[in-house]
């Protein structure tokens, strides 16, 4: 019996250890730095407390957070990041759902093949694939060449360095993260429920809206989080495909850290970003619990 309990203990404790070492601890450091002051030193920030002669002094302050509120640069960057991430998540959903649904309805050899094709691009570095889009989208790039040769446009379109290019990049880059959870969910869907919908007089579109979509909602929500959260902090895509005036929090954070070498402000930005992302996750968890009937 003892062996079984010990085994159980380690099964449960392992995620805790992982989260402690790779989430809680680093976050503690970031939180600590965000309360300090920038200094030209090594490391480039001050202590937030001191301990001398058995005397404890608190030196930390919320000045960095106050600073984020004062300058509308940060406020705009947050807002812009959330907006870009939200729009691209919705676009991603609209592209991914029909694909996931189509694949889930395929016969076996094709289903595995298409699933593989969805994941296949991830075997090439993300950075390289985003670079490739530059070649496609630039003024004298492949896409413009094609449009002009078929006479669709007379002058090359400006597609690169725009919000459009960012949306495209995010949708392209994060599509598998949207497809896979929705696909997994649709595969679990009992086909007789769909037939029951038809049988009771619902037309195909109605069956989709009232049965298939609600029953695959947890996959949709999971996919949206998997796309939205990294998209908010995305740095590579806005840096490479976005315009010079594209304000995204990932870029601002990078600038504060590497250009201004202001670690405390950069840390404060990161803490605020995390808070923004935790709120929707918290509400989603509550919704999920309610659906499962926990605590009813």
């Amino acid at each position: 019996m003892k062996g079984v309990f010990a085994h159980k203990f380690w099964v449960v404790v392992w995620p805790y250890i992982w989260m402690l070492v790779f989430f809680a601890l680093p976050f503690g450091f970031i939180l600590k730095i965000s309360l300090a002051e920038s200094m030209i030193a090594m490391p480039p920030y001050s202590d937030i407390w001191s301990w001398s002669d058995g005397h404890f002094t608190w030196l930390g302050s919320f000045d960095n957070y106050r600073f984020l509120l004062e300058d509308d640069l940060y406020y705009l960057a947050y807002f812009n990041s959330l907006r870009l991430a939200a729009v691209s998540t919705v676009l991603c959903l609209f592209v991914a759902y029909p694909m996931a649904y189509g694949i889930s309805r395929m016969e076996e050899p094709y289903r595995s093949l298409f699933l593989l094709l969805v994941i296949l691009p991830s075997w090439t570095s993300f950075l390289i694939r985003i670079y490739a889009w530059i070649g496609l989208l630039k003024t004298n790039g492949l896409v413009n060449h094609f449009f002009m040769s078929v006479g669709l446009v007379d002058e090359p379109l400006t597609m690169l360095h725009s919000d459009f290019a960012i949306y495209l990049g995010i949708v392209y880059g994060y599509l598998p993260f949207m497809i896979l959870p929705i696909y997994a969910n649709l595969m679990k869907l009992d086909h007789s429920l769909i037939e029951a919908g038809y049988d009771l007089g619902a037309r195909p579109w109605k069956v989709f809206l009232t049965i298939i979509l609600p029953l695959s909602m947890s996959g949709v929500v999971a996919g949206c989080f998997l796309v939205f959260i990294p998209a908010v902090g995305e740095f590579i895509i806005p840096e490479l495909l976005g315009g010079p005036d594209t304000l995204m929090i990932g870029k601002v954070l990078w600038q504060e850290f590497f250009v201004n070498r202001d670690w405390p402000v950069a840390s404060a930005i990161a803490v605020v970003m995390l808070t923004f992302l935790i709120i929707p996750i918290y509400f989603y968890r509550r919704l999920e619990m309610k659906q499962l009937g926990v605590g009813e």
């Binding site: 009992d190 007789s192 429920l193 037939e195 029951a196 919908g197 038809y198 049988d199 009771l200 007089g201 619902a202 037309r203 009232t210 049965i211 609600p214 029953l215």
Partner: peptide, 27 residues
């Protein structure tokens, strides 16, 4: 099927899990 005057009781019952008994019947 959605235009036939035919209704089926499925082997697995195929009750919509996200709807109440009332909503299932009203569907």
């Amino acid at each position: 099927p959605y235009q036939r005057p035919v209704n089926m009781m499925f082997q697995s019952y195929a009750l919509f899990p996200h709807m109440t008994v009332e909503q299932n019947i009203a569907f």
